[in-house]
Design a protein around this nucleic acid. Structure first.
Lengths: 147, 147
DNA sequence: TATTGTTATACTCTATAACTATA
DNA sequence: TATAGTTATAGAGTATAACAATA
């Protein structure tokens, strides 16, 4: 006999969250394609800081991929005029990557599209939305919110 | 001047949900790898119904990929002894895919790992978890919950 | 000698097209 | 003739290893 696992409210909440977010996960490649980008490049665009250019090697860390892949992804962003490589002021080995003006604009458009709530959420009552938001604020990792 | 967008509580809830779920999205490939599977095969495993064998072509529809990719993915699952092809009782063109006993077991292990709530949720008070769950139950798409 | 980034190359996953066998 | 699935092949995206420039 398999043991019946005890009910855990945190697990149920997590399972529900996962189900809700499946929608988003499946939409991501299509959203990227609508801007002419592949999912990797879109992810890169979202992670680039509009104000602080970063070195290729630090991007490899941030994007959790190989340095040669950073070269490839930044090439894609440059082709679209969304980012540009710059020289480092003191260390001539280092290339720095910055969003262009267009890149910053497209990035915020993408964010707007990503953060547009689906109908399923809009249908909640004002009261439900309020309590939901209140709890989620305690949960959401601050670092991943850029505002 | 850019217009300041009006505050929309549904958008904020969605943004918070997205932030919370980034964690899960990034963990998925590692979870798959811990079972010796690639993300596609893991996704396939999770979608296979333990009770109802399905034809290759219907799986192509369910998994939203090409038929030749279904062949490849089912090959991967068979290599691991997680699924098996069977003959269709009446139409000899059709191959049916079923989870093996091992496949059903691994599938439920994967689900258990996926639905294990992260610490960030466990730290919520019982009251917060209760209201969160209550609202999410109204939101979660029923179809994606298999219980 | 160590580090940064690029290039050359190979591997994984996915798709398209041609093919085999059934219907 | 049409459909189910496979095989052959090509493409996108990612990684590893060798390399050039600079520290």
């Amino acid at each position: 006999m398999e043991p019946v696992p005890a009910y855990d409210p945190a697990d149920e909440a997590w399972r529900l969250l996962t189900a809700v977010m499946m929608v988003r996960k499946e939409e991501f490649p299509a959203l990227a394609a609508s801007f002419g980008l592949n999912p990797g490049a879109m992810h890169a665009l979202l992670q680039l800081d509009p104000d602080e250019p970063q070195s290729m090697s630090s991007l490899a860390g941030a994007w959790k991929c190989d340095a040669s892949n950073v070269t490839w992804l930044v090439d894609r962003l440059e082709e679209h005029g969304l980012a540009e490589r710059r020289a480092h002021p003191t260390d001539r080995r280092i290339r720095t990557v910055a969003l262009t003006r267009k890149g910053a604009k497209v990035r915020s458009q993408v964010e707007a599209r990503m953060y547009e709530a689906p109908a399923i959420l809009r249908n909640l009552s004002a009261r439900d939305l309020e309590v939901l938001t209140k709890v989620l604020r305690k949960v959401a990792p601050k670092a991943s919110l850029r505002h």
